[in-house]
Design a protein around this nucleic acid. Structure first.
Length: 496
RNA sequence: GCCGCUGUAGCUCAGCUGGUUAGAGCGCCUGAUUGUGGAUCAGGAGGUCCCUGGUUCGACUCCAGGCAGUGGUACCA
């Protein structure tokens, strides 16, 4: 045995990290969720749009200006002509591209919905993947107010359409303009790339997760977490910290009360006043439509992504707790969000195009619904398996399967090459409710034997005697060949 | 990215202060049952002990570096 000896190079069957396969019941459950959300979006009048997974990187706005390369957070590749393309990282950037490209042909406001996979080249974590599915709805060409309120109410409707009870979710709303006003008050330059601004906003966003003391630390000197890692603070003065803290903790029981408190905090700031006015308009619409604070609340600690939001921002949060497979209590947190982005289309057009939209994270919603036990409607009965006792009689077995299908019953003929024992095992693994057996004995008498696998499994628990196992005749009946469908129906009925 | 923890069979893990052929449970396959899944019994397959180097007569075990995974944190359009 020399080291030089070449082994045949077999590829290892594996998936890149942060990616996963989805199979069977989970696929059905996802499709059912998409369908429920789709119905809500359709009811609100939105039209479907499909765009490709790949876009030119500059159209997504992810080209690094100084280097001749795309942002590392997106998956990118070069076209034949050297142009960079990237996999979309959300559905909003492609929408902006689509609207700009077809601007003159589209009705304004333009209302579209879109579901699809998106990709982010980031460190994966538990429940966080590098590919995941989102379901968006956006209105392009509508000024602040009604369009934003509609998004929030529609997001609430989606939650309930998915079977999440009122009280188990909450739509939280804030306004970027208020955050800008607070930054102004505490003397932080509101330029988008000002690092201090970013630190302040991120700190405020962490209120519900880390608590007020940690936020205070992050606004000031900085904070050391339990792993020993140190996070740099914003180095604000004590006075400024208190102003910021007063702002993020201004949430109150009623919409009016919260807005009144916030108004006091930003009074004198034109941008702040504008922000309050937008939220007041939304609040009036919520009230008129009966969306109370059990569904939508104003929460000044909501920040959302830092890049492109310009007005109201919203987040759908699941408020119930569930136990994971290790028995630990987990909170699902945010399952969707959105907001107003008045500058996105303007990147292409020059002229400002106001827009607002939401995005639901379907994978996280799936995990949540699983924990809530709201997915059984998606399950589908496994097929009846017709055993192949005699390969020469294949046509006859196919005919049985056809009859069952014609009656609306999932059925398949065993397509493998193994014997009866393996076929029974196969039927068991598939979760088949019943098996159809036609061997020589049955054929002679013009009968088929039908075994009820569910009943059989039940009986097996009661049987201790080895003889009985060997007979294997429990839970099966022979009926006339013509009664096949009726007998299967009867069994399916009993096992429902 | 930073800090910590962990890498032994498909999965969950055991393996004494360094000592011969590295184990268990579950799962998988085969048989008891050539026409019967799920119980039981018997048998079987399956391992570069993460990788590389070092210490040693001898390393799964100790040391160093790397890689991978995981938890926290940071980032997340």
């Amino acid at each position: 045995m020399s080291k030089k000896q070449k082994k045949p190079v077999k590829p290892k069957a594996r998936l890149p990290k942060g990616l996963r396969d989805v199979y069977g019941a989970e696929v059905r459950a996802m499709q059912a969720m998409v369908e429920k959300v789709r119905r809500v979006y359709e009811l609100y009048g939105f039209e479907p749009l499909i765009t490709p997974a790949l876009e030119y990187t500059d159209a997504l706005g992810k080209f690094l200006p100084d280097v001749d390369r795309p942002n590392a957070g997106v998956f990118s590749l070069q076209d034949e002509d050297g142009q960079w393309m990237s996999l979309r990282y959300d559905l909003t950037a492609p929408l902006a591209r689509y609207v700009a490209q077809n601007f003159d042909a589209l009705p304004k406001p333009f209302r579209r919905y879109q579901s699809g996979q998106v990709w982010r080249n980031e460190k994966p974590g538990p429940g966080r993947y590098r590919q995941f599915e989102q379901f968006d709805a956006d209105t392009v060409g509508a000024p602040p107010g009604a369009a934003d309120a509609e998004m929030c109410m529609m997001m609430a409707d989606c939650m309930e359409a998915l079977g999440i009870a009122r009280g188990d979710y909450l739509i939280r709303i804030n306004n970027r303009k208020l955050l800008d006003a607070v930054l102004e008050k505490i003397g932080v330059d509101a330029a988008p790339d000002n690092p201090q601004r970013l630190i302040v906003l991120r700190a405020m966003d962490k209120l519900d997760r880390l608590g007020p003391d940690a936020v205070r630390a992050l606004l000031g000197k900085g904070r050391k977490d339990e792993s020993g890692d140190y996070t740099k603070g914003a180095e604000l003065e004590a006075q400024a910290i208190e102003t910021a803290m007063a702002f993020v903790s201004a949430g109150a029981a009623s919409h009016d009360e919260t807005l009144t408190r916030l108004q006091e905090l930003v009074s004198g700031s034109p941008v702040g006043e504008a922000g309050i006015a937008e939220l007041r308009r939304m609040s009036a619409l919520f009230e008129a439509a009966n969306y109370g604070s059990d569904r939508v609340v104003f929460d000044p600690s909501i920040v959302r992504g830092l890049d492109y939001y310009t007005g109201p921002v919203f987040e759908a949060e699941l408020t119930f707790e569930a136990r994971n497979e290790d028995g630990e209590i987990t909170r699902f947190g945010s399952v969707g969000g959105g907001g107003r982005y008045d500058g996105l289309v303007a990147r292409f057009k020059g002229q400002p195009v106001p827009a607002t939209g939401i995005s639901l994270g379907l994978s996280r919603l799936y995990a949540a619904l699983l924990a809530l036990g709201k997915l059984e409607s998606a399950s589908l009965a496994a097929p009846v398996i017709v055993l192949v006792m005699d390969k020469d009689e294949m046509a006859g077995y196919q005919a049985m399967a056809h009859e069952l299908r014609a009656a609306g019953i999932r059925a398949e003929v065993y397509m493998g090459g193994s014997g009866m024992r393996a076929q029974m095992k196969y039927a068991d693994r598939r979760g088949a409710p019943a098996v159809v057996i036609e061997g020589g004995d049955e054929r002679e008498k013009g009968e088929v034997t039908i075994k009820d696998l569910v009943l059989g499994a039940q009986k097996s628990k009661e049987i201790t005697d080895n003889e009985e196992w060997r007979s294997g005749q429990a839970a099966q009946v022979s009926v006339a060949r013509k009664d096949l469908v009726a007998q299967i129906r009867k069994i399916l009925e009993q096992n429902r």
